[in-house]
Nucleic acid binder design. Structure first.
Lengths: 153, 153
DNA sequence: TATAAAACCTCTAGTAGCTAGAGGTTCAAG
DNA sequence: CTTGAACCTCTAGCTACTAGAGGTTTTATA
């Protein structure tokens, strides 16, 4: 079933990954180099499509290139050696957990930020004083409702 | 009160901004160039401290450099020309609103992601099948519970 | 006043994860 | 056989810094 080889453009279409991005992934060793035509153009088989789909999906879920590297090598090992399948799955699980923690952390930081922005903006339109708080809040950390790092003095 | 000039290290301490970052902000024109000693070292006055505090605070709230550039020029205008204070505040308000939208967008994307990661991880430990879903979900978008861009075909 | 250490200086390159453009070649359809 | 789309490599650019090399200035102490 590997008869039909794909050009890079066709692979891009099938995976939803952009052409320069595919070349980039090859350049950093994330996607293996495909065969070439006599003229030097890339021709991909089905295994490339599967791997690239994996990569794009993981990227879309926010995994970093390093993590994907590791996930891919787990993938390859688990495909070839049955004995270590359990370890593989545990490691994959760990990577996903780490990533989940990062995501949760980002969410909580952004939520605090959102609240702060909202209260800054709300102050522009509430009641008698028509003065906008945005500038003064930014100029003076003391006016903040949340703690977020900047503590001058 | 501008008697005591600060070294870059002292300014860093007072603002919570790192020394190389201060030099970086100067290099991109975000913070104005300070006076120098005969030996060529930077010496900052109080206005620099105020401006840098503003910058650091805005960065910490996630504003981009471009937005801060604009906010700073609004700041300067509003300090010099009273007539345009209203416009200034409106524009500051707009920038904050735009930023709020971005933040809200990021939060909703990350939340979907978090749910997906959680369900992937949960599948590793629930019930009879001890097989971890992490790898197979990544390999096959169809197994996803959420829509997030990658739609192969 | 001499010395030594801490802080400062400039410059270049690196980080993540691509994207854009220049300038040239190959492929596939008609 | 021609044409135009798709391909090729290479370099540079994006955000917002950070790290390091190699050298100079300042400041505190003896």
């Amino acid at each position: 079933m590997n008869f039909r080889l794909m050009s890079i453009g066709q692979l891009a279409q099938k995976t939803g990954c952009k052409v320069p991005t595919i070349r980039y992934y090859e350049s950093i060793g994330l996607l293996s180099a495909p065969s070439r035509t006599e003229g030097g153009q890339r021709r991909y088989g089905d295994s490339h499509r599967v791997n690239l789909t994996f990569i794009c999906h993981a990227r879309d879920l926010g995994f970093g290139i390093k993590s994907i590297h590791e996930l891919l090598s787990l993938h390859d090992h688990s495909a070839t050696e049955d004995g270590i399948k359990d370890k593989t799955l545990h490691r994959a699980d760990d990577i996903a957990r780490e990533h989940l923690l990062e995501v949760e952390h980002k969410i909580s930081k952004l939520s605090a930020l959102r609240d702060e922005l909202r209260s800054m903006i709300d102050a522009c339109h509430s009641g008698e004083t028509r003065s906008c708080q945005v500038m003064s809040v930014l100029a003076d950390h003391q006016l903040c409702h949340h703690r977020h790092g900047v503590e001058p003095q």
